[in-house]
Amino acid sequence: MPRKSHYGDGSVYQRKDGRWEAIIFHEGRKISVYGKTEIEARKKMRERQRQVLAGEIARDPTRQTVGDYLLQWLDSCKVGIRPHTTKNYQSHIQHVLNHPIAKIQLQKLTREHIQSFYNTLNLAPSSMRTLHTTYKKAFQDAVEAEKLVKNPCHKVKLPQPQDGEMHEPPPENIVVIIQDILDIAQAEFEQEQSRISLIVLFAIATGMRIGELAALRWEHLDLEKSLVAVRGTLIEIEEIKIGPPKTKSSKRNIVLADFAVEALRAYRVKQLKQKLQTKNWEQLNLVFANRKGGFLQTSLIRRQFKAFLNQHGILEKYRLRKFKFHWLRHGTASILFAMGIPIEVIGQMLGHTRASSITANIYTHIDQQLHIQAASAMNKLVQHQ
């Protein structure tokens, strides 16, 4: 039987299993804590009462689980976000659904739960960061909806790579690697005019994302003025199509280095010949098209890039387990920065929303001459001047 207590003290009694249970009520909801002894149970009860008085116990009458909440959150945020973002959210939430943390009541979720969950994941650092960003946003929305008082992702430490685990090459190494890749790609293109060598050349020359390259059309190029207009990215969910750029700042114009213009002119001639020899050529006017003029899937670009690296011994030479296509973009930024190109120009060239800690909105106009200097820096890289 519960022991008689003063109003507000709660009830404490010993259960049949020998444990002691202390009960308090908050906004019509029963809250129980347990202890091996009566003293321990009362101590926990006083702490819970303190949390109630401090407003640290949020309302959640549905007793919703973490998994149920995240699925509900995903449905609620699908409107107004890009399909690719939705796909990423789904992938991140699936990690939770495959883990016991999904069955914990949202009300009881703590930072310790999140930390323990993170420690079980075996993800690359970049993947871990994007996953953490998703969870922070989801649980912050729960705080704003008064389902949580605090965001359990706050101050959680992301797991560090184990010794020997490969991750992105350090900046001082990536510049050397990119220089090597650029030299090899240029030599291969001069001999074979292969599509992958041009893609690599163009990716380094412009810093464009892989989806932007796959969506590039000839009408987006002005070879007389050495300009490329980035106006879309390839969407590969349900159907393959060209969608809007990743962000507002991703819509941009880039001044091309001379070697990129010359390579594009030569490749254009080759592609036109291929078009005349191919039946049912798709009239998409893509720069980097498949054998019938259709969309070149980004997964194929990545596979061909991997084969390109293996063929020329890049991974073995630099003792790398892998080298991601996206790292070409990092290399472009590192090279231009080392050559003294202002960080704001590099940020605009790559389509970053933020350049360093300065928002792109502050720099609404940067002298065109600085962009021409960026292209000249690329020319010097090829010419080794």
Rank of each mutant, 00 (worst) to 15 (best):
A203T: 00
R268P: 03
Q369M: 09
G243D: 01
K147P: 03
Q160F: 14
Q179F: 11
W327M: 06
E282K: 11
T86G: 15
E344K: 13
L97I: 08
Q283A: 13
H113Q: 06
F189Q: 00
N361M: 12
I242V: 08
R329D: 01
S194M: 02
R291Y: 10
T359I: 08
L198P: 01
G35A: 10
N290G: 06
Q369A: 15
R319H: 12
Q274I: 13
L336S: 02
K322R: 14
L70N: 09
R63P: 06
G67R: 05
Y118C: 05
L315E: 01
T86V: 14
Q179G: 07
H352M: 02
V200H: 09
Q348T: 01
T130K: 06
S126D: 10
A58D: 02
L121W: 01
I114D: 08
I210M: 07
K270F: 08
G294Y: 03
G232D: 04
K273V: 15
T65A: 15
E112H: 15
R48A: 15
R265L: 13
D183L: 03
P125M: 01
A203M: 03
Q140G: 14
F117C: 09
L300S: 13
F288K: 03
I23C: 12
F325I: 00
R231L: 09
L272F: 15
A185D: 00
S91P: 07
T85K: 01
A260R: 04
E27T: 11
K317H: 11
G232E: 04
K248W: 06
A187D: 04
K324M: 11
L201V: 05
I104Q: 12
A377R: 07
V156Y: 05
Q186T: 15
I237Y: 08
N98Y: 04
K16Y: 13
L336N: 00
E144G: 09
R129C: 05
Q369P: 02
R265W: 11
L223S: 00
E219Q: 10
R29S: 09
D222A: 07
L256W: 07
Y118M: 08
K108E: 13
